[in-house]
Amino acid sequence: NQESVVAAQLIPINTALTLVMMTTRVVSPTGIPAEDIPRLISMQVNQVVPMGTTLMPDMVKGYA
């Protein structure tokens, strides 16, 4: 089963992602794949992401 990127903390809107903000977990439905974490660093979220929420492609500016 593929791991997806999950918020390790509350991420406010327009925050640039850092490694410490993200963790990985096997979730359903699947979100952004864990191997894309290096690509996500410094990208901004376009909404508030509560802790434990799976990051979906449409939540990250410039990802999709």
Rank of each mutant, 00 (worst) to 15 (best):
V27T: 12
T54Y: 03
E35T: 13
L40K: 00
S42Y: 11
R25M: 15
I37N: 01
I32W: 02
L19M: 08
V20K: 13
L55F: 11
L55I: 13
L55H: 01
V27D: 12
N46G: 14
S4I: 02
V49M: 03
T23G: 15
R25S: 14
V60W: 02
N1D: 15
T18E: 05
V45H: 00
P57K: 09
G62W: 11
M43A: 14
T23V: 11
T18W: 03
P38D: 05
L40P: 00
K61M: 11
M22S: 00
M56Y: 08
L10R: 12
P29R: 03
A16E: 09
I41R: 06
Q2N: 15
P50N: 12
E3H: 07
D58L: 12
K61I: 07
T15K: 04
T30F: 14
M43R: 11
E3W: 08
M59R: 02
V6H: 03
E3C: 10
I11N: 00
N14V: 02
M43H: 09
T18R: 06
V6P: 01
M43P: 00
P50I: 04
G62L: 12
N1L: 15
M21R: 04
S28R: 02
V6M: 05
D36S: 14
E35P: 09
L40A: 01
Y63A: 03
D36C: 14
G31I: 03
T30A: 12
Q47F: 04
A16Q: 09
A34P: 10
I37Y: 05
E3A: 06
E35K: 07
A64C: 15
P29M: 09
I37E: 03
L55K: 01
G31K: 02
T30K: 06
G31H: 02
Q44L: 14
V20D: 05
V5R: 01
N14R: 06
S28M: 06
Q44V: 11
T18M: 03
I32L: 06
E3I: 06
T54K: 03
I13Q: 12
T18C: 04
Q44C: 12
M59N: 03
V48L: 14
L10A: 08
I11L: 12
D58F: 13
A7K: 01
A7D: 01
K61T: 09
T30I: 10
N1W: 05
P12Y: 08
R39K: 13
Q44T: 12
T24N: 08
S4K: 02
E3M: 06
M59D: 03
T53M: 14
T23E: 11
M59T: 04
P38S: 07
I32F: 05
V49C: 15
N14T: 04
L55Q: 01
R25K: 15
P29N: 10
